[in-house]
């Protein structure tokens, strides 16, 4: 579904350049759920932003559904690829009703039957029509993230980029959103590229995942590898140990920043 070859993203002026993503290659099959896990600054979100066209200065090759992605994305690209952002408080327009937020992609893409599609999208994320004419501030964090997911789904994309979709939410709300995302993938066969700092979320949502550090993929592993603890890279093993909770004895062995 998506193939990334030797992707490199650099930020800043020549003299103080930061290489955020450093020669990353990935292949994700159609219908797969693939995770990118790592700590802050590892480049995981930057990969999503480069794919989505939110960053221009990348080099390498990206292709989605067999077609190479060009600098200037056409409308067809965004019918294929949509994104859900981390912060449900910042990613919805505060002065637009839910109805307008969900209608806008349809208007931009000149799709008819807006009314029914908006209703269907709200049903799909289990919000229901009563939310249609509310504003984002009248919704809880979990409800807002459902709206963001509905907005991503409304164009019927085949690939959804999920950037920490639950890290701003309480753990009980996270469970509801992750279950919703699982249901959507089961029903529609959509492909997920999911970024998270939480190994537990990645283990739950993704068949395979890449562990990232300082812009590089250090290891690609499967959910099974994680459950049996058979990770090959020292950094991945450290991440796994750290995710299991506090253990004074193991912490002194951690390699520093």
């Amino acid at each position: 579904m998506i193939s990334i070859q030797d992707l490199t993203v650099r930020f800043g002026e020549v003299r103080q350049q930061v290489t955020a993503v450093d020669g990353v290659s990935l292949d994700v099959a159609a219908g797969e759920s693939f995770g990118l896990v790592g700590e802050s600054g590892s480049g995981k979100s930057t990969i999503l932003r480069a794919v989505a066209g939110l960053i221009d200065n990348w080099t390498g090759a990206i292709s989605v559904d067999g077609r190479p992605v060009t600098r200037r994305r056409d409308r067809a690209f965004y019918r294929l690829v949509q994104m859900v952002f981390q912060d449900p408080f910042g990613s919805l327009h505060p002065k637009h009703t839910i109805d307008r937020i969900l209608s806008e992609p349809l208007i931009v893409h000149r799709i008819a039957d807006i009314e029914n599609r908006v209703r269907a999208a709200l049903d799909q994320v289990q919000l229901g029509a009563r939310f249609r004419f509310r504003y984002p501030h009248q919704l809880s964090g979990g409800q807002r993230q459902r709206v963001a997911i509905a907005r991503a789904l409304i164009l019927g994309p085949r690939l959804i980029l999920l950037d920490e979709p639950t890290s701003a939410l309480d753990v009980s709300i996270q469970a509801e959103i992750l279950n919703l995302l699982s249901d959507i993938r089961q029903q529609s066969g959509v492909t997920y590229l999911l970024v998270s700092h939480d190994l537990g979320v990645v283990a739950h949502m993704c068949d395979r995942f890449a562990v990232m550090r300082q812009g590089k993929v250090v290891e690609v592993a499967t959910r099974g590898d994680l459950a049996t603890g058979s990770l090959s890279h020292a950094y991945s093993r450290q991440l796994l140990l750290a995710s299991r909770g506090y253990d004074r004895a193991v912490i002194d062995a951690f390699a520093d920043e």
């Binding site: 996270q174 469970a175 509801e176 279950n179 283990a203 739950h204």
Partner: peptide, 20 residues
């Protein structure tokens, strides 16, 4: 009990998370 159950666990993968 609900809070403990709804967090995804690395060592014990479940097909669907419990909700509260």
């Amino acid at each position: 009990r609900g809070l403990l159950a709804c967090a995804p666990e690395i060592d014990r993968p479940v097909p669907r998370l419990a909700t509260l």
